[in-house]
Design a protein around this nucleic acid. Structure first.
Lengths: 114, 114
DNA sequence: GTGTTTGCAAACCGTTTGCATGTCC
DNA sequence: GGACATGCAAACGGTTTGCAAACAC
């Protein structure tokens, strides 16, 4: 289960993971998938991403990186170059964990199409 | 309805807005609130914030500013000082709208308590 | 009249949970 | 045996939607 997430480089939702798991273990149930995802997320083994499609997306890569989410097509893009966090955060005593930060806007594909 | 959101400086959820509206107009229904919130959001008059509490939070302030969300207590904090967006975004041709960006971590209150 | 907005309740859908069964030591 | 993980189905809760009545022009 953990491997299934770690081995993919996208940001699957719970039911995408469910489908993947069923290929390996056809009898696995959706409840189990949700339970284990929550466990992994609580332990910090995976990252959860809140998007605007009302589904939770999971990321098996817990290294320091942030994300960009296209508000038009929902595409999620990894940003790996470490970025300077705003001074305002430290001034207010706020600590960002693992550079978890989500930028929202339009991706190239959507910009071109308009 | 628009005024109700614009006049508050927090980041209310749909049912918080519903409660506020009912004080002014006791017969208003939840469906109407959701419908109008969606309209306002589509028109760009308000901003939606995706948090981890599975509720949509709305922000009547559409000026350029980003947000910090505490993953422990759910508190949402405005960051008003404009921050330098990562170069990686422009390199990838990604445009962030209104500096919409959410940082996740622990707020001061939660850090102190632990 | 026609077109738009509303209240209401039911539907929707991603997620969570209760419980009986199965598995491992 | 006991502790824990799983399958299954029902429940949960925030959001959406269909529809008839109310409103605006």
């Amino acid at each position: 289960m953990k491997d299934v997430i770690k081995n993919r480089c996208d940001h699957p939702t719970a039911d995408m993971i469910y489908e993947s798991c069923r290929l390996l273990e056809p009898n696995i149930s959706l409840g189990t998938v949700y339970r284990n995802l929550k466990l992994l997320a609580d332990e910090g083994d995976i990252i959860t991403l809140e998007t605007s499609d009302k589904k939770i997306h999971y990321d098996g890569d817990i290294s320091r990186h942030s994300h960009f989410i296209c508000e038009k097509c929902g595409k999620i893009i990894d940003l790996f170059k470490p970025s300077k966090l705003p001074d305002e955060l430290t001034e207010l005593g706020l600590t960002v964990k693992g550079e978890k930060c989500i930028y929202y806007g339009d991706c190239t594909d959507c910009t071109i199409k308009n």
